[in-house]
Design a protein around this nucleic acid. Structure first.
Lengths: 185, 185
DNA sequence: TGTACATCAGTGAACGCGCGTTCACTGATGTAC
DNA sequence: TGTACATCAGTGAACGCGCGTTCACTGATGTAC
């Protein structure tokens, strides 16, 4: 049955929220029915909100990158962001963590609109990371942002793919020490 | 109909070879039928060689990591390996390139046997990379291998996910200069 | 070396299943009077 | 403010399709004599 405009709007948000988490957790193979169920709806209702699964994916990418860049900004310092990013907690929390670490392996296989949304988001994140570097030279702060992002994404992606708890922690800790310029414990 | 032992063995190799390429290109969603077709067989024949898709994936991971570590060793120097790894050519060649950059995003969602095969291979690659470092200190050469691997994997994974040709090359070049300790062009 | 026959790799139809999407229907919402 | 009714969000059955896997069958291989 029809629902009020407020409830409709809430349902839409819940769909995006559910997709945002499930896409990162399970990748783009996650089903429309599962996303709808996680939002408390049936799969049929989904199409009252989005024209296709692809359209939802685009919105979900926009939302998850918006959220995670807020998170990045809320870190007190760049170093504390690195610390949080390379924590076992983040490695375990794929569904709620960095969209780049969660999705960059999948995105190249998806439709152009999805790749474009992802790309736009990454460009913004690099911009934002560069602006946080304590470096008056604009070019070199962008370079440092790119290298740090690649290194952190690579470390978390590899850590998540590894079966041994020890190797996982070794990767995260080693990269963390390097990025924070710390000597071995 | 039955075929000779030699042809049977060749078919098996072709299945592993096709899977090795297609898994990296398309991920684990690639179908048994498509892999069999790429090997010149029908999907039914597949089960004369492997008990399940999962079993083939395990073999394919073992083979592709074996091949790519040979490739790594065949590079004249560590620096020339970095150069090749961070080339647009490698970014374009997902199906024939580094298995870690191609599959680490997908592996955490797969069966334990696949994760274990991947993990074993990565551990060997780290070992082998560490042994190539011109550093008598064993601990620090391992650390450098881990950091360099994470950075290179992250760079290629991000570069592949990006829609803009310019950003793709910027990521690869920036990380390359950093790893080779070169000043900007 | 020649023959008879058991073996078994490969084929293609069929299985149950889950996917994205469509659609007839339901009934609460919200508008026109 | 009250009533009559058009709208449309949500439901759940149904669509065509492709998946991994099974299986009866075919016919070349390779072994036993």
């Amino acid at each position: 049955m029809k629902v009020s405009k407020e409830i409709r709007a809430r349902h839409r948000e819940q769909l995006i929220e559910a997709a945002s988490r499930l896409l990162r957790e399970r990748g783009f193979e996650v089903g429309v029915a599962e996303i709808a169920a996680a939002a408390g709806l049936t799969h049929g209702a989904f199409y009252a909100h989005f024209g296709s699964k692809e359209a939802l994916c685009v919105e979900a990418i926009a939302q998850m990158t918006r959220h995670s860049s807020e998170l990045a900004k809320s870190s007190e310092s760049w170093d504390s962001y690195i610390e949080a990013y390379l924590s076992p907690r983040h490695a375990r929390n794929r569904g709620g963590g960095c969209p780049y670490a969660a999705l960059s392996g999948d995105v190249p296989r998806e439709a152009a609109s999805i790749k474009a949304a992802f790309s736009r988001a990454l460009e913004n994140s690099l911009e934002s990371a560069a602006s946080r570097m304590d470096d008056s030279n604009r070019a070199s702060s962008r370079e440092r942002a790119i290298v740090a992002t690649a290194t952190m994404v690579g470390a978390v992606v590899l850590a998540r793919a590894v079966a041994s708890e020890d190797l996982r922690e070794e990767i995260l800790d080693t990269v963390k020490r390097k990025l924070l310029n710390k000597r071995p414990r």
